[in-house]
Write a protein that binds this DNA or RNA. Structure first.
Lengths: 229, 229
DNA sequence: GAATATAAGTGTTTGCTTTACACTTCATTT
DNA sequence: AAATGAAGTGTAAAGCAAACACTTATATTC
């Protein structure tokens, strides 16, 4: 069915580009790939795809992230739409999402298949088209969002230590955080549960594992309080 | 020129919807119109239009705002892309911008032409499709942005009084602000210039006019400080 | 022209949040 | 048993945010 009024309007390609973020070696990483087709074949590119007529933009982004990582449960948020006429060789409007994934769940066989690499956000190569701009905008957004929403945990495994969590936030904000102030603040919110085991991989003494408890976070919100780091 | 790889991909309608905001009678207003065509003819709708092949999404939004207000110099920011499959009867991906305009510059002849009305944001009627969601998302964004960027001035004429400015922020945040704290904070930033004339329309005593000085704001930023209300 | 009415304009105190800062503990390795 | 190195802990100072009430200026009214 076509509605009369719309008929003479232009249709455009609509793409999604995904900034897939992971955390390892105490640094934020982004998954990028060598582009396998023209234009800009061989250039470093974000993970993208086209939006089909029959799928929502959000689902298109989910599909792309799953396709390139093998991960199904994904935290994703829209960054925005990029619509300059000359941003691609063809006229393509691209809608950007960032995804926060537990890098341990990454299906490494896909790296070879798609010529993809996890690169440190501080050491990104030049990307094609406006992809560098997209990454910059995303980092900005992430910094603002991670400060007030407990989204950082999506980058970590179920269990993590406080030193690791702190490293994560230091990597997101790209600045050092005082250890005592950080622990005070995060523990005061009472949204973490301390485990009995320690992670001894990073020190002799070992650091206790903690888990983020969504129910505790919901309680915090119900009390009219907010997450804040 | 068509690049081979893209050829078998779907193309979609891409629209812009604009949340055009103005300030009068001490309240934020939004420009809405009765939709003149099917589907949903006669329903209250945001100001929108389709993105042409040859114009950027941003320019499409500017064009729409100019068309419906007669105003050319517009502060505009993207809210995001709305891409559910069933958000319209046809498959239309809509990219939303909010625009802050000085309502005094509004060409009132356009109101009749487009069956448009300025309505208080607190008294919006039901809007078609996902337009109510768009407005809610926008108000949220505006609240966060107006707190840290001097964008509110775009809603006021060149000269304005501090009581008016305070009313504006109260309308944006939908809460009362202490007069002394507000004046202290805004004046401490030293980004306003006090005029010699008073506005006597709202009180016998009259309130001094002020102007926002962009150069002073730039200085503030250069000092490593930030706008904050 | 004196009294009245009304919004504009002005400082200080209190509490809270943020920042700065250094030593002890634990477990492994030598 | 000693040494190593990261994990873990509390307090004080400063800065920021929030609460709060009276005086001033001018038009209007009597």
């Amino acid at each position: 069915m076509t509605t009369a009024f719309y008929q003479n309007k232009d249709k455009l390609y609509v793409a999604v580009d995904c900034i897939i973020m992971g955390f390892r070696e105490n640094e934020l990483h982004i998954l990028i790939a060598k582009r396998p087709f023209e234009p800009m074949k061989g250039g470093w590119s974000l993970m993208g795809g086209f939006v089909d007529e029959s799928e929502s933009v959000y689902n298109a982004a989910k599909r792309v992230v799953s396709e390139f990582t093998g991960i199904e449960d994904i935290y994703m948020e829209q960054v925005g739409a990029y619509g300059e006429v000359d941003r691609d060789l063809e006229r393509v409007v691209s809608i950007v999402y960032y995804a926060l994934v537990d890098i341990e769940k990454f299906d490494t066989s896909l790296a070879a298949k798609y010529d993809a690499r996890w690169v440190k956000i501080t050491k990104l190569p030049e990307l094609i088209f406006d992809h560098t701009l997209m990454v910059n905008d995303t980092l900005n957004l992430l910094q603002r969002r991670a400060a007030i929403k407990p989204i950082g945990f999506n980058l970590l495994p179920e269990q993590f230590t406080l030193p690791t969590l702190q490293n994560l936030y230091e990597s997101i904000y790209q600045e050092n955080i005082d250890k005592r102030n950080f622990r005070k603040k995060i523990l005061a919110m009472d949204i973490l549960e301390k485990m009995e085991e320690k992670d001894k991989s990073a020190s002799r003494k070992g650091a206790f594992y903690y888990r983020f408890i969504k129910e505790k976070y919901d309680q915090l919100i119900q009390q009219g309080l907010h997450f804040s780091i």
